[in-house]
Each structure stands twice: as structure tokens, then as C-alpha cells.
Nucleic acid binder design. Sequence first.
DNA 1: TACAAGTATGAAGTATACTACATAGTTCAC
DNA 2: GTGAACTATGTAGTATACTTCATACTTGTA
Lengths: 126, 126
Amino acid sequence: MKLINQLSKETGIPIGTIRFYEKSGLFSGEKKQEVTTNNYVYYGDDVIEKLRFIQMAKAVGFTLAEIKEVVDAWYKKEISQKAQIEVLDKKLLQIDVKIKELKAMKKQIALCKYNIENRTEQDIII
Amino acid sequence: MKLINQLSKETGIPIGTIRFYEKSGLFSGEKKQEVTTNNYVYYGDDVIEKLRFIQMAKAVGFTLAEIKEVVDAWYKKEISQKAQIEVLDKKLLQIDVKIKELKAMKKQIALCKYNIENRTEQDIII
DNA sequence: TACAAGTATGAAGTATACTACATAGTTCAC
DNA sequence: GTGAACTATGTAGTATACTTCATACTTGTA
């Protein structure tokens, strides 16, 4: 079980951001009953896993609301099995769309590069 | 040459958003000298192309600032050829990272699906 | 020629995702 | 046992990317 500082160090995500994510309902830590002198919150390894998933998902343009849908389906949460699968399948389709878009962008940029590399003096007049 | 309404219809991007992009320096239209009664702005086909690129790039998590770097390199703009190529190569690498992240997410979600589908009654106690 | 629809401009408002600050209590190293 | 470092909580501020609103002028249609 880890404290917030350790989560931050292991993932590179600032403490403030981790707190913000927790407040947004993306995951939650727990207080240890055996510790009564403070109200420090401890996090399990599933939280590290979720944070890494959030990092990736954000990097490819998913919003926190969209990410929350997935992690809710992921870690049960009184949703029916059918609903869970539906959410995950929808997300898989969205991912495929994004991959296609990235591949289209690659093509477009590669073509652009080609044009620049083979540009002659005359072209510059345009 | 198209007016803003037509751009919006062809791309599905709201007029307000197109104006915002233009103000952000992502592209620009031109006023026709032969028309003196109004100050309507006309856009070439390159703008449609740029708008479609912006749509894709945004969908995969690039910011407008990042997108601006590319379209600036794209359509010349007094940048040296070497600098243009550098920007485009950097973007190609970023795209490959995103594709890898998407593939990793696919794996993770597929595994999650598998676990849900093969969950037994006992597991639910966890 | 009236009037709906389109265009330009500027300013203000909104949503998302942080980020910083202030305060207060806790733990740990020396 | 004291000070640096860590934790919790709440509030306010910031950046990005729009979105809406108000105003005013222009164009096209009946």
C-alpha cells in the first residue's frame, strides 16, 4: 500500500493531479483502520495500473469522462456484465478509429515531407 | 473559393470554431479586391484540407499549438527547409508513440473483457 | 422592398483539466 | 524536540478550446 507521494514518483503524475483524478471518481484510496493518529490515504497497486491507463488514454485524446467509463466497467461497480462488455467494445472501436486517423496523418505528413524535400526553386515562387 | 458557411458544411465544424481556428493562426482566408461592397472572407481548398487535418489531429490528442507547428511547416511560412523537416519528423515520432499507446490500450481492454466474460460466481466475492 | 439568412467583429461566458495557495495537522531524521 | 518534509482539505486561479451574445452591415428571395 502506497502513499500519494509514492504514486506520484512511480507514475510521474503530480500529486495535485492525482488528487484531482481521485476527486473526479477515477479511483479511490483507503484509510487504514489500524492507523488512528492521522487520516492518510493508502493506495493499492490497482491505482498505479489505473494511473498508467489514464496517462495513455489522455495522450491519445480521451477525456477524463470517457476514461471514467472504462475504469468503471473495468473494476466492476454494480454494472451488469453485459453493460461492462458494451462499454469496452465501444472503446475498442474508438481506439481503432484513432489508429486509422493516426495512420492517415502519417501518410499526409510523409507526403508533405516528400514535397518539401523535392521542391525546386521554381516551386518557391508559389 | 468558399465562404465560411460552406467550409462549415463541408467539414461539420461550427462556424464559430472555424473563426476561432483562423484567429489562432491555423490558416487564413482572403478578401477579394474585386468585391468592394463587403468584407467577406474567401477560403481556398487548402483550408478544407487543413480543417480536416485539424479534426484528425485533435481526435488523437494533439493540441492546437502542436497542430499549428505542423501546418506552419506544411505551408512554408519563411521557415527553413531543414526546420520544416525536423518538425514533421518529430510529429511522425509522436504519432508512432500514440499508435503504440493505442495498441497497448487495446490489449489491456481485451484482457479485461476476457476476465469479465470468464468470471465465475466466486470471483464476485472479491 | 421587406425580411430572412449570411457575414464580420468584439467581448463575455462555459467546460475541461489542471495548478497554486493557504491552512493545519503528522511523521521522520537529526 | 525541533525543523524539514509529508499529508489533507478547500478555495481560487490558469490554460485551452471553444460557445454564446450583441451589434451591425450585406445579400438573396418572394
